[in-house]
Design a protein around this nucleic acid. Sequence first.
DNA 1: ATAGATAAAACTGCATGCAGTTTGATCGTT
DNA 2: AACGATCAAACTGCATGCAGTTTTATCTAT
Lengths: 225, 225
Amino acid sequence: MTEKKKRKDVIRAGTTVEQMVRAVADLIVTGQMQPGERLDELSLAARFDVSRTPVREALRQLCAMGLVGRQPNRSAVVTNVTDSHLSVMFEAMAELERICARLSAERMTVEERRGLDLMHRASMRLVHAGDQEAYAAHNMDFHTRLYRGAHNDHIFEMVTQTRARLAPFRHAQFRLAGRLAKSYAEHQEIVTAILRADAEGAARAAYAHVSIVSEASTVFAADHR
Amino acid sequence: MTEKKKRKDVIRAGTTVEQMVRAVADLIVTGQMQPGERLDELSLAARFDVSRTPVREALRQLCAMGLVGRQPNRSAVVTNVTDSHLSVMFEAMAELERICARLSAERMTVEERRGLDLMHRASMRLVHAGDQEAYAAHNMDFHTRLYRGAHNDHIFEMVTQTRARLAPFRHAQFRLAGRLAKSYAEHQEIVTAILRADAEGAARAAYAHVSIVSEASTVFAADHR
DNA sequence: ATAGATAAAACTGCATGCAGTTTGATCGTT
DNA sequence: AACGATCAAACTGCATGCAGTTTTATCTAT
């Protein structure tokens, strides 16, 4: 019993496939695997010490998530968001953020508004400290709240998925000089509009916010080519 | 050689998994499988005369598409879009259509605008004939052009996916009295705005159009409960 | 008669094996 | 020397088998 349980504790965090999805997604999102790189089933299976079956299913799911591309009888490859899609992806992201901001301004509960405001104010400390790592985490949370605030699960799903694909590029944006303070100021605008239930103002601010991130990220991507 | 080729001709239309995805999606979308119904791997495998492996992978993909739900160690079940998600899905759809219409008004090429206008005009014949089947096909095409016109592949993908999930409900909407003519009139508004490059007008008209479809479909869904 | 326990049947999760396809390296030809 | 053909190694697609879990049917006790 203990043996079995132990094995589960180690292996479990959902099924093997779920783990594989998370693990491989992590490799991609953190940049440990470059776009265009091949993901062959056998190597991955060996690497994580499972058989090819869960690997295959994970790859299929990652394909659906857009993180890898597949063709029949060929290895899966890490999707190259860089190449053609970057601006398209950011545009989509901006549109989604705009929707979420507008709906959030209309629908957020009092608690949600207060929570957003509080966590935003708290983040000022991180800006002053210049703590990029912590601010990135805060930023993630901030936007997640916006997405949740729209109170529409399907939109939430779409925006989350899109964000996942853009993750590699967003990650490094705060390195650029002054981005932290700028980001904070932009958040401020969004928060203010939402607190006022100013749907159009929130929408505009959120759209602009992503556009700026987009430019910053494009610069970053160009640097690393 | 001929033997092999023949086998391919029969089997081929992509890989086995792709076929399974299409086949099962069809079962769901056409209503041959009701929401909540269980999809057990063995039965499906037997039904389509393949092994469980491609069935499993197809189910995983269908899950990603949102057509079926899964839990570890349980059978996949046809997603019950009806229950809670219907209005949420339509709302998301409306937002996406709004974006597409706005971007289409801004970006469509001259040919795209002309094509949209022509096919819209041609559809008047179907309205007069009261040909629901043909009009449904036209409607599909019409909206697809709107999505393409946005010139953003990622948005196209999202909207296509969302539409797929709503397909079962959209299908029957034209049965309701007068829907054909109303739909045509609404399309007219969208087309007019796009031809004028009136982004906001197109956005507004498209949003309203989906909202009305939503109501019609909700009625339909309620009827069939 | 109903509720709960128990055991068997059914089904999912994963591993493994084989067939067919792709990849890439070697050899021969121009 | 460069290009193309040929063949072997590597890899994907799918089938099948076993272990473990869920589901269902039967039996027992209140």
